[in-house]
Design a protein around this nucleic acid. Sequence first.
DNA 1: GCTCCATTGTTGCTTAGGCAACAAAAATTC
DNA 2: GAATTTTTGTTGCCTAAGCAACAATGGAGC
Lengths: 193, 193
Amino acid sequence: MLPIKMEEKLDPRVKRTRELLEKAFMEVINEKGFQTITVQDITERAGVNRATFYAHFADKFALLDHSIRQQFIQEIDKRMLNACHFTMDNLRNLIIAVCEFIRNANSKCKPAQSQFETLVEAQVKEVLYDLLLKWLEQARTSTEPEIAATATSWAIYGLALQWSHTKKPEAVEKFADEVLPLIASNLQLVEAA
Amino acid sequence: MLPIKMEEKLDPRVKRTRELLEKAFMEVINEKGFQTITVQDITERAGVNRATFYAHFADKFALLDHSIRQQFIQEIDKRMLNACHFTMDNLRNLIIAVCEFIRNANSKCKPAQSQFETLVEAQVKEVLYDLLLKWLEQARTSTEPEIAATATSWAIYGLALQWSHTKKPEAVEKFADEVLPLIASNLQLVEAA
DNA sequence: GCTCCATTGTTGCTTAGGCAACAAAAATTC
DNA sequence: GAATTTTTGTTGCCTAAGCAACAATGGAGC
């Protein structure tokens, strides 16, 4: 159950092809690095026609974007059994998910991948925004949901990034507890009767 | 490289679908047993449409046949790097492959699967026949290749089955060495200058 | 017996994927 | 820097897979 988009009953063939491409992409990228790989490398590994690749992604950069996004969504799924609505616990898990994701991204892509950081940031904030917006639309807020969602997504990412640079990884939960009230206040939620 | 049929450049989609069905079949069969599973179970697990199943197999029995055959072919592939032509070593490995395959089949399908033994026998002998025939057609024989291939395939299977009932599994290689001359004589090969 | 429900095969129609060929853009090589 | 190869996107045509609906079969339960 994806937290953002509910699975829109997409054609099994499409699902299969995307998964094959994503899987192959991760494999090949770990062997040769992003710069050197070609679309051919990916499609050959995936056992998918090259023309089919272009039916799904504009180029390998688009696949990279999509891949980052999917991995982050998976990170969320892993940590939040029910992300459909807001609870303090869900919010806490969400913060932890962002921290862990950034930490993994940094550790995996250490060499010369500061290029990736921008992409990661963009994807993560987008997913965060969508999820938070969904939560806020189901609740009462004292601000426009779009405003609160933007502020909160930026705040979460900024804090998580800072944490990943300074704090030790063991303290994720502690860190989450620390910033939870601050983040929550960004949501501008009004208590319901 | 399959030993029997050279890979006839079959459509990637066909290959994919068959593999998905085979994989799902093995999974489901290990969970519920062959009798109780339905075609739906298999196709749902595989993520393949039920109609597509029937485009490939007449029914679950046909898939069972195909599955047994494939597993035996895999057993051969595992043990024979180059099965394209006859050598004493290839023949020895072939004998070992049959022994191991029967042993595995018996150990896995202990309960109430004597029904399967007939199917296993049929498939194994068929694959053996095809492979031996290919070998013999590349060589000089003092008999019709079809005759020699039939006799040899039956002989190999019979001996392997007897071995699986009586001898201890450790002695596969020893057993193979023991029967190798006898089996080889069945091939009716004439030494080439 | 009977109904009810699940499963089976089959069918026509739609959609996604494979393939080959192409021109254009990058890289390589020399 | 010219020539050659590789890679890239794109296209039209063909085939395989998805889907929904159907009648038919076959149990399971009453």
